[in-house]
């Protein structure tokens, strides 16, 4: 997910880790993403992915205690990169936590959230360490742009 070209636009949003702010975060990112040629379905997919990453930060990162969630979105090379960061408790074993067989249990909120991010975005990466917070990186390009490139 290295940026290979100039950044066309960028925004950063920072807010308290309250459930009330999940809708706010996904709405802001969706409006920002609409600068690219995404379909309504693709915008809906971005909203789900942002909602999942921010919800995970609130529930698992901060375990419902007050903290700060930062959402950054970058438009470059015809795609959006969304970075959701918390400074919470972190994940000891990222590979295990994000493994599809572990995360696809429908009764496990965090796992299902990662399944949605993986399905709805083109790329996803989770960086985390115990007591150092978690950062979820995800990117998506409009399918129309992907089709033109091939």
């Amino acid at each position: 997910m290295n940026r290979n070209g100039p950044v066309d636009n960028r925004m950063t949003l920072s807010f308290v880790s309250k459930p009330e702010n999940v809708a706010f975060a996904r709405a802001v990112v969706a409006m920002f993403a609409s600068q690219l040629d995404f379909t309504i379905d693709e915008i809906d997919e971005i909203k789900v992915a942002v909602s999942e990453a921010v919800s995970n930060a609130i529930i698992h990162g901060y375990e419902d205690q007050p903290g700060e969630v930062r959402v950054e979105a970058i438009l470059s090379n015809g795609r959006i990169e969304v970075i959701v960061h918390d400074s919470g408790k972190g994940i000891a074993d990222v590979a295990w936590a994000t493994e599809p067989t572990h995360t696809s249990r429908p009764d496990e909120r965090m796992g299902l959230g990662l399944v949605f991010i993986r399905e709805y975005m083109d790329e996803m990466r989770v960086d985390s360490a115990p007591n150092q917070g978690t950062t979820v990186h995800m990117t998506k390009a409009p399918r129309s742009a992907t089709a033109r490139a091939h």
Binding site: R26, D44, V48, S51, E52, S55, P106, R109, L112, G113
Partner: peptide, 12 residues
């Protein structure tokens, strides 16, 4: 108009 894994969790 929108549902995510938290909404699914509530339905389940």
């Amino acid at each position: 108009t929108f549902i995510d894994s938290s909404g699914l969790g509530a339905l389940l």
